[in-house]
């Protein structure tokens, strides 16, 4: 595979919460326009790792990071990197949907407005385009002025995805995006991930093994802050290389 196919590369990444080491020597290459799943038991460091990819850990006190995280070959922890612009390029979806207490429309145009887009026609177009991309348009097109808080959990999550997409990110980080949703809403999120990977690189943390198997192209298994195995998902779920992987994915521990 050509170097240019690697969107994110981390090398010897260590992360400490005070004296507690949460990530140990994590080196991984994440392919562009593919879905990469991070799996592992609670506390293994997968969400911490995800948050290093858009420097969300910067907001936590006493976090120390060593090693490299490069996106398109640029070290995102370099002093010259503008964190706001980084987070525009690297969007994030959380486990619990977190719409702003505003209308559906205002949720989606929030980012573009901050980025200086003010024209109504342009903003309308952004709302429509990204609601379609997030597979929520048909459900909200007649109620865009209503509060996003009145939507169901699954709809709120897709509005959050539309909001994240509205600033045209290149990477979407998803931290258990469907764990609080029913199977139909989950299926919708998974289907839209397939559509989104035509344009975006997606990294998803999930506790649902079947979800990791269904949606991802590659899968990284984390255990106590280390990557135990990183492989093609089809290989990971049929012929894992490490015994720990076999034990975890078949539910024997974790």
């Amino acid at each position: 595979m050509l170097m240019s196919d690697k969107k994110i590369i981390t090398k010897n990444l260590d992360l400490y919460y005070s004296d507690n080491q949460a990530l140990k020597n994590v080196s991984i290459e994440i392919n562009e326009k593919k879905i990469t799943a991070l799996i592992g038991p609670s506390g293994c460091g997968k969400s911490t790792f995800l948050r290093t990819l858009n420097r969300l850990n910067d907001t936590i006190d006493n976090v120390r990071i060593e090693g490299e995280v490069k996106i398109d070959g640029v070290d995102i922890y370099d002093k010259r990197v503008d964190v706001v612009s980084l987070r525009r390029r690297v969007g994030m979806i959380f486990q619990k949907s977190n719409p702003f207490p505003k209308s559906i429309y205002e949720n989606i145009v929030y980012g573009p407005r901050i980025n200086g887009i003010t024209g109504k026609k342009e903003l309308d177009e952004i709302v429509e385009k990204n609601c379609i991309r997030a597979a929520i348009w048909d459900e909200v097109k007649d109620r865009l002025k209503e509060s996003a808080m009145g939507l169901s959990g699954g709809q709120q999550q897709r509005v959050c995805i539309a909001r994240a997409l509205a600033v045209d990110p290149e990477i979407l980080l998803m931290d258990e995006p469907a764990s609080a949703l029913d199977p139909i809403s989950t299926a919708k999120i998974e289907e839209l991930m397939f559509d989104l990977k035509k344009d975006l690189t997606i990294v998803i943390v999930t506790h649902n093994m079947q979800q990791a198997a269904r949606v991802s192209d590659r899968c990284a298994f984390f255990l106590t802050g280390e990557i135990i195995e990183y492989n093609q998902t089809s290989k990971m779920f049929t012929k894992p290389e490490k015994e720990e992987t076999q034990n975890y994915i078949s539910g024997r521990f974790g």
């Binding site: 093994m209 198997a213 779920f237 994915i249 078949s250």
Partner: peptide
């Protein structure tokens, strides 16, 4: 049970 890996085989 949606078996995987050795269980699946």
């Amino acid at each position: 049970t949606q078996p995987v890996a050795f269980d699946l085989r």
